[in-house]
Nucleic acid binder design. Structure first.
Lengths: 215, 215
DNA sequence: CCTACCGATCGGTAGG
DNA sequence: CCTACCGATCGGTAGG
């Protein structure tokens, strides 16, 4: 498909670029696609290991064209993390929302673990690993920007963990348990293979077995 | 201290460099010191984020002098991981050896967890985090070279985990439990602060509480 | 180990 | 978005 006529459907106030900054351009979804491509490159090679030329080539663009959409390479990293965190938060809220209001701690933790594993190792799984493993490369301002969503994502685990701690199912203190559990799940990005013999559901159950002796 | 006379204690077959390759030089412990400095730089900035100039400066050398000791930057990374793995293996063997021969699974796991946490977050803790987080950057040959020690290190966990699984203390399958536990412990490098309110011993106990309900 | 240097690659920009 | 380009930095080397 050629792009020659795409303006026809977009132009409303004359021709040319909208008066947006590079941070906000998303003509024809091209910016979103670039974020996906960058996420994959950053994950595979690391932020410093993936050059802007690598990313442009993977997106079928010329090297300099990235900077029509992004102010800098760091801005691309920031965008990857923002998009990823926003997807993860939406996915987690949906997973919790699908539970019965009377779901117990085990059921809540299972939903959270299953969703987090899906995010870590499923398809479209590049965003959060990039965020976790390149977190320190954000500037203070950028980090603060993503932190709000990140904190909320993490906070949603606490009621389930506290309930399990109260009933004695969870033996570690909830806040430390959360950190250790996140570590265990985040690390699956390093070894879990979707094509392997272990399914996501089985991995979820094994995780619950380890953390709260459920099996 | 000046280095002007160090040759006096070393020279045995005339003056000048020993006929060693860059890979084996370690005059006056300078190479070992470089490995420590590089480990710190790699951990703080990542492999690609730390330039050979950064490392040389941190070691008080001129930029090009590194290549008197190492064939390439990748060789430095490899050396960091080899040294780290060798230290970790020695430390773990010592920790297990210090146990009573009749120590049970809980005691064995406690010793392993405590030792691994020490390696991850204690002083001199740069080697293994670098290995874990930059593992993919090794060439196939280099990876194979470190893998033997790494496999042995990991294998030493299995008897304890299998014993705990048999007695019902551990509810997850030993091999998966090992991967999840390593993830939880490896991730502490991202959040544990030695100056924080949580001590290494307390973290060890909380970990055991999470994994096998010990408290 | 230092001095002096090189070719390659990088992130980014001007102008259209 | 592309073309053409720039200054900075990088890993690495020759010669001593």
């Amino acid at each position: 498909m050629q792009a020659g006529h795409e303006e026809i459907t977009v132009v409303k106030r004359g021709r040319g670029r909208p008066p947006k900054s590079a941070q906000q351009r998303n003509e024809g979804g091209r910016r979103s696609e670039l974020i996906r491509v960058a996420a994959r490159q950053f994950r595979q090679r690391g932020f410093h290991g993936a050059s802007t030329r690598d990313i442009a080539a993977a997106a079928g663009m010329q090297p300099g064209s990235l900077f029509y959409f992004f102010e800098s390479k760091e801005a691309m990293l920031h965008a990857v993390m923002c998009d990823g965190m926003s997807q993860a938060a939406a996915s987690q809220s949906a997973a919790l929302g699908a539970l019965s209001p009377r779901a117990n701690g085990v059921e809540r933790l299972r939903a959270l673990v299953r969703n987090h594993l899906q995010i870590m190792v499923g398809p479209e799984s590049d965003f959060i690993p990039v965020m976790l493993y390149e977190w320190r490369l954000l500037s203070d301002a950028q980090r603060q920007d993503v932190s709000a969503q990140k904190d909320e994502y993490e906070a949603q685990w606490m009621p389930a963990l506290q309930a399990l701690y109260r009933t004695g199912r969870l033996k570690a203190r909830p806040e430390i348990a959360r950190l250790l559990i996140f570590g265990a799940l985040n690390w699956t990005a390093q070894w879990f293979s979707e094509s392997g013999s272990l399914s996501l559901d089985e991995l979820t159950e094994q995780s619950l077995a380890l953390f709260i002796g459920e099996r």
